[in-house]
C-alpha cells in the first residue's frame, strides 16, 4: 500500500472507518479515589465490544474532589452502544450491579446531552419505598438507603447520538515486544485525550477480526490478512519484515475527539520510532461503504 514515511515509520495511505453510536458519560464518586476507581473499573468490566458485551465502556479520566458534584474524588466513565434501548439497558444493569453495590459510591450524569437516559429514575425502586427524591434547580437526584448509608444517584444521565465508535490504528512491528511497546505508547497517549476510551484490555486488541468465516455459525473470524504466522499462506497485508500486529480501537463522544485520539496515538508511535516500536501504521476499514466516519491517516500526522 503506498504511503509516506515519518521519522522512519511507514504510514499507509488509508483510513479508519467508524460508525455512529449512542453514548453516555457517568461520574462515579466515592470516599476515596481508590473506591471511585474500583466502582468504575467494575462497571466498565467486560465491555470491550458491542458484539459480545452489549456496550463498550471505559474510564475517560479521573476527577479531583473539586471537579465532582459532591466534592469527593471521582472517575468519569463513558459507555457506548448501538441503540438507545441497549445503552439504557446496559447503564441500568451496570450501575445497578457494580456502582450501587460499591462501598460509599454515588453516581451522576457526566454529560449534558440532547436526550437523557434513566439512571436513578430506574434504580430508585431498590429503595423499596424509602427512596428520597430531591430536586435543586435543574438537578434531580435520588437518595436510596443502603447498608453503608445512602446511594446518591442523579435521576437521569445525558445521551448523545453524535458519538463515534470504531476509530482505530493498526501497529505493525518487527517483534511482539516492539509492537507492544508502540501500542502501549499509543494507548497511554490516547488515555490523555478527553471524551474518548479505548475499550479493549489496556486499550489494546490483538485479535482483529474480519467479517464472516468458513463456518456458517461464526459471524466474525480472525483477520488472516494481518496474521504474521499466515504471511505466506494467505493473501496477506503484511510485508516480509512484519512479525506482530496490534490494534487500538477508539470510541469517542464526538468525531473530533476520535480524530484527536488517533492523532495523539500516531504521534506517540512515531516518537518511539521503528526500531523500538512499530515500523508501520495502518488502519482498518471495510472499503468505506459501511461506516459514515472516515479518518485518513495522512490527515492525522504529527
Amino acid at each position: 500500500m503506498p504511503g509516506l514515511t515519518v521519522k522512519g515509520v511507514r504510514i499507509d495511505d488509508t483510513f479508519a472507518e467508524a460508525f455512529g453510536m449512542r453514548a453516555t458519560a457517568l461520574v462515579i464518586t466515592a470516599d476515596s479515589a481508590r473506591w471511585a476507581r474500583q466502582a468504575a473499573v467494575t462497571m466498565t468490566g467486560m465491555a470491550t465490544s458491542v458484539i459480545g458485551c452489549g456496550c463498550e465502556a471505559g474510564i475517560d479520566r479521573e476527577l479531583t474532589s473539586k471537579q465532582t458534584p459532591d466534592g469527593r474524588p471521582g472517575v468519569r466513565v463513558l459507555l457506548f452502544a448501538v441503540s438507545t434501548a441497549e445503552l439504557q439497558k446496559q447503564v441500568q444493569t451496570r450501575v445497578g450491579q457494580c456502582v450501587l453495590t460499591s462501598p460509599g459510591s454515588a453516581c451522576y450524569s457526566g454529560l449534558e446531552g440532547e436526550e437523557s437516559l434513566r439512571l436513578g429514575d430506574g434504580l430508585r425502586y431498590f429503595g423499596d419505598g424509602w427512596q428520597i427524591s430531591k430536586r435543586v434547580g435543574a438537578k434531580h437526584f435520588w437518595r436510596i438507603p443502603v447498608m453503608d448509608g445512602e446511594f446518591v444517584c442523579e435521576a437521569t444521565a445525558g445521551l448523545t447520538k453524535k458519538a463515534v465508535g470504531g476509530g482505530n490504528l493498526l501497529m505493525i512491528g518487527r517483534t511482539a515486544q516492539t509492537t507492544r511497546a508502540a501500542a502501549e505508547a499509543a494507548a497511554a497517549a490516547i488515555a490523555k485525550v478527553p471524551d474518548v476510551i479505548a475499550p479493549f484490555p489496556g486499550g489494546i486488541v490483538r485479535s482483529g477480526s474480519k467479517v464472516g468465516s468458513k463456518y456458517k455459525s461464526v459471524p466474525a473470524s480472525t483477520n488472516d490478512a494481518y496474521c504474521p504466522t499466515l504471511r505466506g499462506a494467505v493473501k496477506t497485508a503484511l510485508d516480509n519484515d512484519a512479525g506482530s500486529v496490534l490494534e487500538i480501537v477508539i470510541d469517542g463522544l464526538t468525531s473530533d475527539a476520535v480524530a484527536s485520539a488517533m492523532r495523539a496515538g500516531i504521534a506517540a508511535i512515531v516518537k518511539l520510532g521503528p526500531k523500538r516500536g512499530a515500523m508501520r501504521i495502518s488502519a482498518g476499514n471495510y472499503g468505506g461503504k459501511l461506516g459514515p466516519h472516515h479518518y485518513y491517516l495522512r490527515t492525522l500526522l504529527p
Partner: peptide, 10 residues
C-alpha cells in the same frame, strides 16, 4: 450523608 454534601454543593 453524601446526599447532603451534594445538596450543599447545589
Amino acid at each position: 450523608l453524601v446526599g447532603n454534601r451534594f445538596m450543599a454543593a447545589m
